[in-house]
Nucleic acid binder design. Structure first.
Length: 894
RNA sequence: GGGCGAUUAGCUCAGUUGGUUCAGAGCAUCUGCCUUACAAGCAGAGGGUCGGGAGUUCGAGUCUCUCAUCGCCCACCA
C-alpha cells in the first residue's frame, strides 16, 4: 500500500466495503456479553431509488451504529425492504400494458407471480445503492415485508385484532383512488388548495316557476342527489322543509330536509345531499334514512345512472353537465371558488369519496397505550416538539382503513360462507370451525389485500423473528431478548402517523413493550428555492452521481454538517451538472485530512518508525496542548452525540482537525522538528500519529472509507483488520490542562496580532522577516522565552526582543496582555499608521465609555454578582492601559 | 379554523442555564502569498442596531407578550 497524492475514493470505497463484508464486521451476535445497541432501518420501497432523504437518513443511522460499535457495544442494524403495494403493482401493470395486457388478463395468481419475478429482477436496487454510502447493516438479517415470517405475522395480527373486535368491516365513504382503483387511508390523502368554480343551480318546485338556489362545486354529482338540506333555524327556508324540488337535468323529485349541517351563512343556505359521494352528505343521509345512489364507477367514470353522461370521466361529465344546465336555463350563476381538494399522495390524482365495504381497525384502544409511553417519556422524540403533533393525532385518531383492492400484498385472512357470514382464520378448516360449519362447507376468501403499512407497523416484531421459518411464534427468541427494544429509530416526520405511531401501537399490543427508546426525526432536504428535493419535481440530482464526484465520505460528512436537528436543510442544486456544489465542504475536508496523513507519512519516511513515546519531559507545549484539545474534543463529541446534535459533532471534529491539528499543531511540529534530534523526532512523530489515530476513530462513523484507508496506511495494518472494531478512548479530564491551553492560547494571540500588524502595513509582506519586540508581564515573558523559537518562526521574525526597549521605527499592536512592536524600518507610511492607531483608540474608547456607564450605575454594582462587576473593572483597566500604550505610540509619530 | 417551527453578515446556518473571549462559523467578496502535507491550500480584511414593537431585569440574540413575514402538519361548509 502506498500514499497517493489524492484519496482515490472510487477504488477504495469499493475495496473497503468488500473487506468489511468479507470480514463480517457488521455481523451481530445475540449471544454476546456486550451491551446491545440496535436500530431498525426504515424499510425502503422495493421500487425505490436512492434519493437525498435516504442519504441523510442512513448516514445518521450509520453514524450511531459505527460509533456504538467502536464504543464497545454489540451492535445490530436490521435492514429490509417494503413490498409497497400500490407502487409495485402499478409498476408491473404498466409493464403489462406495454404488452397490451391487463392484470385481469393474467388472473390473480399469475399476476402475483409476475410481481415476484419483477421483484427478483429489479427489486432491491435501493439496497445496493445504499451500500455505496458505506452503511454497516447486518445484511444477513435483511427482511422483506412479503417474506414468509413477516407474512405470517401480518396474518396473525389481523386475526387477533379481528377476534378482539378491533378489526371490523363497514360500509363507509372512503378515499378512493381512481387511478389505482383501491381504497386509501386518510393518511394517504393530501389536501391542496385549488381554484374552481361554485355553480349555483335551480331546483324548481314542481309545477311552479319558483325554485331553490343550490350551490355545488361538483355539478356532475346531481345524479346522486337524494335531498336538499336547509338549516331548520333558517327563517328563509324553515317552512319549506318537507316540500319537494326537482333535481335539474335529472328530473327526480327530492325532499327538502332540515339539518344543522346546512350553514345559512354559506352560499344560498341550501345544500344538495349526495350521500354516496360526500362524507358529510353520507352522515346526513344516515341521520335522515336516505338512500345512497352511487353514480360513479371505480375508474372515475360516470355509471349508467348518469344517463347520457354514462361512461364519461367525472370531469368530462362535469363540463357537459354545466353546458346543459346553462343551455336549459337551470344554472343560476357561476362564481370563483377556492377550496381544498384531496389528492392521492401516490398517484397525484383527485381522490373520489366513495361508498364501499372496507375493513377498518378501531384505533382508539390502541392509541391510548401508545400515547402514554410517549407522554411518560419512555419513548423520547428528538426534537421533542414532535410530541405535540403525536399527541394531537392520537387524541383525534380515526379508524384506519386497511383493505386495498389490489392483488399485490397480504391477502386478508377472512373467509365467508354462502350466507355471507365471515371470520378471520389461519386456514379454511379453522374458519369452518369458527363459523360452526361442516367440514365440506364451501368458503370464499376475501379478495382484498392489506394496506402496506399493516405489515410495516409490525417491523420491530418481524425483523426480530416474532415468527420463525416454521411459522411458530417466539417472542422470547434470543434476538428479541438481546436487542429489543431498539435504541434508536431514524425517520422523517412525514411518516410519524403512517409508521412511527402505529409501530408503537403494535408493539404495545403484541408484546406490551415499546419498540424503540428514541426517535430521531430527520430534516427535509430542500433546494435553493426551498422546495423539497423530490422525484416528481425533478429537482434532485442522483446521489450516486454526486457520490461519484465527491466521494461517499464527503457526501456523508457534508450532509451531517449541514443538517441541524429539527430544521430543514437547504442546498443549492445544479441539475444540469447533477451536482450539489456545497458538497465541496466535505470534499475539501477529506482532502485536508488526507494531506495531514500524507504529511505524517512523509515524516515517518524521514525519521523512521517507533512504538516508543516521548517522555513527559520531552513533550513541548504544543504537544501537551494538542493532547488537551483532543480530550476536550472527545468530551464535547460525547455530549453532542448523547443529545443527537450531529451537526455540532461534525463541526467540532472539523474545527479540531482543520484548525487545531493541522493549523497549529502540525505547523508547530514542523518548526520544532528542525531543532530536535532525529531520535526525539521519531518519538514525537509516533506521538503525533497516536493523536491522529484517535482523530480517525472519532471521524470514522461519519467518514468510514478515508479513515479506514489512512489508519491502514499509517499503522501498516493487515487488510483483515479494521478501524471499525477499534475501541474509542474515553475523555480523560486529567489529561486536559487548563494552563497549557491558556498558555498556548496566548502564543496564538501573539502570532495572530503580529500577522495582522504585518498585513496592515502595506510596505511589509507576510514573509518578510522583521524584528519583533514584545513587552508583557513576567509570566508571559517567561512563556515566550520558553517558546522563543516557535514564536519566532510562526511570526516570521528575525529576532524577538523581550521587555522591549529597542529604538527604531515600529508599528504597534496591543493585546490585553502584551504590547507588540513590529520594526518595519524606514518605509512605514506615517499618516496611515497614525490613522490606524487613532481608529483603534477610538474603538477602545467607545468600549470604555460603555463600561464606565455600567460601573457608574449603582443598581448594576449593587445587584450584579461581584464576579461580574469585578470582570467589568478588569476589562476597564485592561482597556485603559491599552489606550495609553496606543496613545504613546501615536505621539511618537507626531 | 387549530397546532408546530423559523426569522442573526450578501448566502447557508451556530449561538446550551440571561453576564468575560457574544455578536460567531462556513461559503461568497476584497488584499497578499504556488511557504517542500494540502491553491480542494495559507495569511489577512471588510460586512449584522440578532424581523418590528412592548415588557421583565442592574443587564436580553437568549425570558414574556404582541405584530409581521415564511414554511410545515392537522381539520375540511356545499
Amino acid at each position: 500500500m502506498q500514499f497517493d497524492k489524492n484519496f482515490n475514493f472510487k477504488d477504495k470505497e469499493k475495496k473497503w466495503y468488500q473487506k468489511w463484508e468479507d470480514n463480517k464486521i457488521f455481523k451481530a451476535d445475540e449471544n454476546s456479553e456486550k451491551e446491545p445497541y440496535s436500530i431498525l432501518m426504515p424499510p425502503p420501497n422495493v421500487t425505490g431509488m436512492l434519493h437525498f432523504g435516504h442519504v441523510l437518513n442512513h448516514t445518521l443511522q450509520d453514524l450511531f451504529i459505527r460509533r456504538m460499535r467502536m464504543d464497545g457495544r454489540e451492535v445490530v442494524w436490521f435492514p429490509g425492504m417494503d413490498h409497497a403495494g400500490i407502487a409495485t403493482q402499478t409498476k408491473v401493470e404498466q409493464k403489462l400494458k406495454e404488452e397490451g395486457l391487463s392484470r385481469h388478463d393474467l388472473g390473480r395468481e399469475k399476476f402475483v407471480a409476475k410481481v415476484w419475478d419483477w421483484k427478483e429482477e429489479y427489486g432491491g436496487i435501493i439496497l445496493e445503492q445504499l451500500k455505496r454510502l458505506g452503511i454497516s447493516c447486518d445484511w444477513d438479517r435483511t427482511l422483506f415485508t412479503m417474506d414468509e415470517t413477516a407474512s405470517k405475522a401480518v396474518e396473525e395480527m389481523f386475526i387477533r385484532l379481528y377476534d378482539e373486535g378491533l378489526i371490523y368491516k363497514g360500509k363507509r365513504i372512503i378515499n378512493w383512488s381512481p387511478l389505482a382503483q383501491t381504497a386509501l387511508s386518510d393518511e394517504e390523502v393530501e389536501f391542496k388548495e385549488v381554484h374552481e368554480k361554485l355553480y349555483t343551480m335551480k331546483y324548481y318546485f314542481k309545477g311552479t316557476d319558483s325554485y331553490l338556489k343550490v350551490a355545488t362545486v361538483r355539478p356532475e354529482t346531481i345524479f346522486g342527489d337524494i335531498a336538499v338540506a336547509v338549516n331548520p333555524n333558517d327563517i328563509r327556508y324553515k317552512k319549506l322543509i318537507g316540500q319537494k324540488v326537482i333535481v335539474p337535468l335529472v328530473g327526480r323529485e327530492v325532499e327538502i330536509i332540515g339539518d344543522d349541517y346546512a350553514d345559512p351563512e354559506f352560499g344560498t343556505g341550501c345544500v344538495k345531499i349526495t350521500p354516496a359521494h360526500d362524507p358529510n352528505d353520507f352522515e346526513i343521509g344516515k341521520r335522515h334514512n336516505l338512500e345512497s345512489i352511487n353514480t360513479i364507477n371505480p375508474d372515475g367514470s360516470m355509471n349508467e345512472l348518469a344517463g347520457k353522461y354514462a361512461g364519461l370521466d367525472r370531469f368530462e361529465a362535469r363540463k357537459l353537465v354545466i353546458k346543459d344546465l346553462e343551455e336549459s336555463g337551470l344554472m343560476e350563476k357561476i362564481d370563483d371558488y377556492t377550496h381544498n381538494v384531496g389528492f392521492s399522495q401516490r398517484g397525484g390524482e383527485p381522490i373520489e369519496p366513495y361508498l364501499s365495504d372496507q375493513w377498518f381497525v378501531n384505533m382508539k384502544p390502541l392509541a391510548e397505550q401508545a400515547l402514554k409511553v410517549v407522554q411518560d417519556g419512555e419513548i423520547k422524540f428528538h426534537p421533542n416538539h414532535w410530541v405535540k403533533t403525536y399527541e394531537h393525532w392520537m387524541n383525534n385518531i380515526r379508524d384506519w382503513c386497511i383493505s386495498r383492492q389490489l392483488w399485490w400484498g397480504h391477502r386478508i385472512p377472512v373467509y365467508y360462507d354462502e350466507n355471507g357470514n365471515h371470520t378471520a382464520a389461519r386456514t379454511e378448516d379453522e374458519a369452518r370451525t369458527k363459523l360452526n360449519l361442516s367440514s365440506d362447507a364451501i368458503l370464499k376468501q376475501d379478495e382484498d389485500v392489506l394496506d402496506t403499512w399493516f405489515s410495516s407497523w409490525l417491523w420491530p416484531l418481524t425483523t426480530m423473528g416474532w415468527f420463525d421459518e416454521n411459522g411458530n411464534e417466539n417472542l422470547d427468541n434470543p434476538t428479541m431478548k438481546k436487542f429489543s427494544p431498539t435504541d434508536l429509530l431514524v425517520t422523517g416526520p412525514d411518516i410519524i402517523f403512517f409508521w412511527v405511531a402505529r409501530m408503537v401501537m403494535a408493539s404495545k399490543n403484541v408484546k406490551d413493550e415499546i419498540p424503540f427508546k428514541n426517535v430521531y426525526f430527520t430534516s427535509l432536504i430542500r433546494d435553493g428555492q426551498g422546495r423539497k428535493l423530490s422525484k416528481s419535481l425533478g429537482n434532485s440530482p442522483d446521489p450516486l452521481n454526486v457520490m461519484d464526484k465527491y466521494g461517499a465520505d464527503a457526501v456523508r460528512f457534508t450532509i451531517l454538517y449541514l443538517a441541524p436537528l429539527g430544521q430543514d436543510v437547504r442546498m443549492e442544486v445544479d441539475l444540469e451538472a447533477q451536482d450539489i456544489p456545497s458538497m465541496e465542504v466535505g470534499r475539501n475536508f477529506a482532502n485536508k485530512l488526507w494531506n495531514a496523513g500524507r504529511f505524517l507519512n512523509m515524516k515517518v519516511e524521514q525519521f523512521g518508525e517507533t512504538n516508543e513515546m516521548p517522555l513527559e519531559s520531552e513533550l513541548s507545549l504544543s504537544d501537551k496542548w494538542i493532547q488537551s484539545k483532543l480530550h476536550e474534543t472527545i468530551s464535547k463529541i460525547d455530549d453532542c452525540l448523547n443529545n443527537f446534535k450531529v451537526t455540532e459533532y461534525s463541526k467540532t471534529l472539523y474545527d479540531f482537525i482543520w484548525s487545531d491539528y493541522c493549523g497549529w499543531y502540525i505547523e508547530s511540529l514542523k518548526i520544532e522538528s528542525y531543532s530536535n534530534t532525529d531520535e526525539l523526532n521519531k518519538k514525537k512523530l509516533a506521538f503525533a500519529i497516536n493523536i491522529f489515530n484517535e482523530v480517525l476513530k472519532l471521524l470514522h462513523p461519519v467518514m468510514p472509507f478515508i479513515t479506514e484507508e489512512l489508519w491502514h496506511l499509517l499503522n501498516k495494518k493487515a487488510e483483515n483488520e479494521s478501524i471499525s472494531t477499534q475501541q474509542l478512548i474515553k475523555s480523560d479530564d486529567s489529561v486536559i490542562s487548563k494552563s497549557v491551553i491558556y498558555d498556548f492560547d496566548k502564543l496564538m494571540t501573539l502570532v495572530e496580532t503580529t500577522r495582522s500588524l504585518k498585513s496592515s502595513t502595506p510596505s511589509v509582506s507576510a514573509e518578510q522577516r522583521l524584528k519583533l519586540g514584545i513587552t508583557s508581564n513576567e509570566k508571559i515573558t517567561q512563556l515566550i522565552e520558553d517558546n522563543l523559537n516557535l514564536l519566532k518562526e510562526l511570526t516570521k521574525s528575525t529576532e524577538i526582543i523581550l521587555n522591549n526597549t529597542s529604538e527604531g521605527i515600529s508599528v504597534k499592536g496591543v493585546t490585553n496582555f502584551a504590547e507588540i512592536n513590529l520594526y518595519v524600518g524606514e518605509v512605514v507610511d506615517v499618516e496611515q499608521e497614525k490613522e490606524r492607531l487613532s481608529g483603534e483608540i477610538k474603538r477602545l474608547e467607545g468600549q470604555v465609555f460603555g463600561i464606565n456607564k455600567k460601573l457608574s450605575n449603582a443598581s448594576f454594582v449593587d445587584n450584579a454578582p461581584a464576579s461580574v462587576v469585578e470582570m467589568e473593572r478588569k476589562k476597564l483597566s485592561d482597556m485603559s492601559e491599552k489606550i495609553e500604550q496606543l496613545k504613546e505610540s501615536l505621539i511618537s509619530f507626531s
